[in-house]
């Protein structure tokens, strides 16, 4: 799905999510604000229990904020009914889960075609598109295998194809390599990065791995339901290969604001070796970020 020019893929303004547990309000997310532009590559990091998954569910329209404004693909989720939100998920969002979540008795091609079922697309066209998408993730030869007949890496690639088959604006991946060994995980990661670079689909990926996070151009650090930092840094890493031309050769980091320039408007100095890469953190609007620095991912290993 191609969004109109100037429409951010996702826009969160002071988004909160509170759970009711035995009549007690438990705040999970507290006033999160940021914008994801189309084509961006964002890593979401934070310790376990910091509400990264909760945040991803909101960004993907699986859940609704209890407070604040959340606009996905130009549509304010507060104004959408349950079926409208489902349609929005179908058209705008592609999910990749840590646990793959493939239908076990269904072939790879039919698993990939599943989102198209809910678009009312006919069986033949679904299969054609699913097969083509499986080809894009390098599984053109595994169309009729069931998940149990595939390796973990292949299963995750099927799941990626499923997320991609609807041509979404955003790919949301919650620890997509969490269940894979490092070599397989690296391949999946490279696939995601390649798809992000090639098709312009925004990629928002939760990861525990600092090295992985460092490959993203932008990192959002979450702790205890708040955005601790939101930083952009450009490095000539695989994630940057094939990025829009304006990004190339702009290895320095720059501060960013919610309403400010997206990745398409980099500014700042040039040059700089990886070790010298700047790293700026931006507190969420209207808040003060605590502890900027210490626990932030190190941008390193670029050279």
């Amino acid at each position: 799905m191609t969004l109109p020019v100037g429409v951010p893929a996702i826009e969160a303004v002071d988004v909160s999510r509170t759970y009711q547990l035995d009549g007690v309000s438990v705040p999970a997310l507290r006033g999160v604000s940021f914008t994801i532009d189309s084509g961006e590559y964002v890593a979401v990091v934070g310790p376990s229990g910091s509400r990264k998954s909760t945040l991803m569910h909101l960004l993907g329209g699986l859940d609704r904020p209890t407070d604040g404004r959340l606009v996905i693909g130009g549509r304010d989720v507060a104004t959408l009914s349950a079926p409208e939100l489902a349609t929005l998920r179908n058209e705008t969002i592609g999910f990749v889960f840590q646990a793959f979540h493939l239908l076990p008795r269904t072939s790879a091609v039919d698993n990939v075609a599943l989102p198209l079922v809910y678009r009312g697309i006919g069986a033949r066209q679904r299969r054609d598109r699913a097969a083509a998408t499986l080809g894009r993730v390098g599984l053109g030869h595994r169309l009729h295998h069931r998940p149990s007949q595939l390796s973990g890496g292949e299963q995750q690639r099927v799941a990626i194809a499923r997320a991609l088959v609807t041509d979404p604006a955003v790919l949301l991946a919650d620890e997509p390599t969490g269940n894979l060994d490092s070599a397989t995980g690296e391949a999946v990661l490279e696939l995601l990065e390649r798809l992000n670079a090639e098709s312009g689909v925004a990629l928002v990926m939760v990861t525990h791995d600092q090295e992985v996070a460092a490959r993203a151009r932008r990192q959002i650090a979450v702790r205890d339901g708040r955005v601790r930092s939101d930083a952009i840094h450009d490095r000539p890493l695989s994630g940057a290969v094939g990025r829009p031309a304006t990004l190339d050769g702009a290895p320095s980091a720059e501060p960013r604001s919610v309403s400010g320039s997206g990745p398409g408007h980099p500014s700042g100095g040039s040059g700089g070796a990886a070790g010298a890469t700047g790293r700026l953190s931006r507190p969420p609007s209207g808040r003060t970020a605590e502890g900027v620095g210490g626990d932030e991912p190190q941008a390193g290993g670029g050279s």
């Binding site: 489902a86 349609t87 998920r89 179908n90 809910y118 499923r162």
Partner: peptide, 8 residues
């Protein structure tokens, strides 16, 4: 999963 990929 079905809901996540767009089932109403």
């Amino acid at each position: 999963l079905r809901k996540a990929v767009g089932a109403r």
